Computed example of a mutant assay.
Amino acid sequence: MISEIPFRAKGIELMNKLGTTSTPFLFVIDYKMENSVIIPLQQIDNTVLCFEINGTRNFEPSAQSITPPFQFSKHPVSRDIYQRGFDIVMKNLRLGNSFLTNLTFTTPIHSNLNLKDFFMNSKAPYKLWINEKFAVYSPEKFVIIHDNVIRSFPMKGTIDATLENAEQIILHDEKEMAEHYTIVDLIRNDLSLVAKKVRVERFRYFDTINTNQKTLLQVSSEIAGDLEPDWQNEIGTIFSKLLPAGSITGAPKKKTIDIIQEAESEPRGYYTGVFGIFDGKNLDSAVMIRFVEERGGSLFYHSGGGITVNSICEHEYQEMIEKVYVPIN
């Protein structure tokens, strides 16, 4: 059994304490910063929790593989339900309450895979499995801290890689461009809360993601800033200032979080929270997207995307559905 602790009341202090003593630990923080799992690496039981973070893992990879096609079907919310949430977001965008809002929904899925199967067989740089709770196979870094430099890598913009001129299409799409500029500006502001000399080091570069359905191109940027040499003493405090992640909320963040709560049909829980490890010296973390949750013996996939005033409901609805995938090929 994995023990949760309140993040604000206990988690921040515990992360600071473990960082001060250079104790390697894993952290998992939910979207609203209400609950967290914070465990020294040596105390993790890999029969109930497994992680893989850029090649660092606490389990032996399975020699078995799934032979496609495996069973995987999705049953998204109706267009009408999505429209209601979309309309709430659009109303606030037109009133100027937000410039970008990330709208997400939950999709019931059926598969011959269980949570552990998803975790073991998916291909992603950041993976996490907690028994009977959820599995994550995320392509999105949150922050990396190395040699006193903090870096964030917001992802905004996804396109089918097989489309002719796919890179040029998404790079010149006005809606995608506006969304990406907004998030980069938000992350720059967020990092400025904890770091100095914040700068954009890479802007709108591409990553390739292979899925069970198709190959996708994902657009990201890299923003960096300089931390104080004793930043390890304040790991929990740093995360409390940066969360929730800007890429899965919007801008301005505080008001947009209120809009999300009104527009979305159920709480996000750990979906779009963050997880990562501190190895005693450096830190690596990810945003918990590409997220499968188990509730009452059934599986649910969470997905969504950024909405701007230029968004078209049908396009956003289809993007939400397309993001329900498993990176197994």
Rank of each mutant, 00 (worst) to 15 (best):
I223C: 05
E294P: 00
D258G: 05
H110C: 01
S152R: 03
V292L: 07
V184C: 03
P61M: 08
F142G: 01
R8F: 12
P244I: 14
S152K: 03
T208V: 14
A63K: 14
T158Q: 00
Q168E: 14
S247C: 06
H146A: 14
K241T: 05
K281D: 07
S36Y: 02
P61R: 12
T107A: 07
K17P: 02
F86A: 08
Q168W: 03
F291H: 12
V89R: 02
Q218K: 09
I312N: 13
N46L: 00
Q64S: 12
F25Q: 03
F59E: 09
W129L: 05
F239K: 11
D185P: 04
K10W: 04
K17I: 06
Y126E: 03
S298L: 13
I130D: 00
N54F: 10
M1D: 12
V274S: 02
I38A: 07
F25C: 00
H146V: 10
M1T: 11
H172Y: 12
A224G: 05
R151T: 15
I12N: 01
G250A: 08
V309D: 10
K74G: 00
W231H: 11
P154Q: 05
V143Y: 07
T158L: 01
I5M: 12
L299R: 00
M320N: 13
S138V: 06
D226Y: 01
A245L: 06
R268H: 10
F51V: 09
D30H: 03
P229K: 14
E179N: 05
G96K: 10
G296N: 15
I2V: 15
L113Y: 00
N102F: 10
L163W: 00
L186P: 06
I2A: 05
R295G: 02
I277F: 12
D226G: 01
S122T: 09
I289V: 11
V198Q: 06
F142A: 02
I260L: 09
R8M: 12
Y325R: 08
I5Q: 11
T104N: 04
L18P: 00
I289P: 05
R151Q: 14
E13I: 04
K323Q: 07
N212G: 02
Q218C: 03
L14S: 06
E262R: 13
Q232L: 02
F27L: 07
S138W: 07
S65Y: 11
V274L: 09
P69G: 09
S111H: 05
T158F: 04
G11F: 05
I44K: 01
P139R: 10
Y271N: 09
A195T: 12
K197Q: 15
S265A: 15
S152L: 05
D185M: 02
V200C: 10
E140W: 08
L193A: 14
I259R: 03
S152V: 06
N233F: 03
P6C: 08
I145M: 04
I328Y: 02
R79S: 08
I53W: 04
Y126S: 05
F86I: 09
I321L: 05
D226C: 06
A63I: 07
G273D: 12
M33I: 09
Q71L: 15
D30I: 03
T237C: 04
F119Q: 04
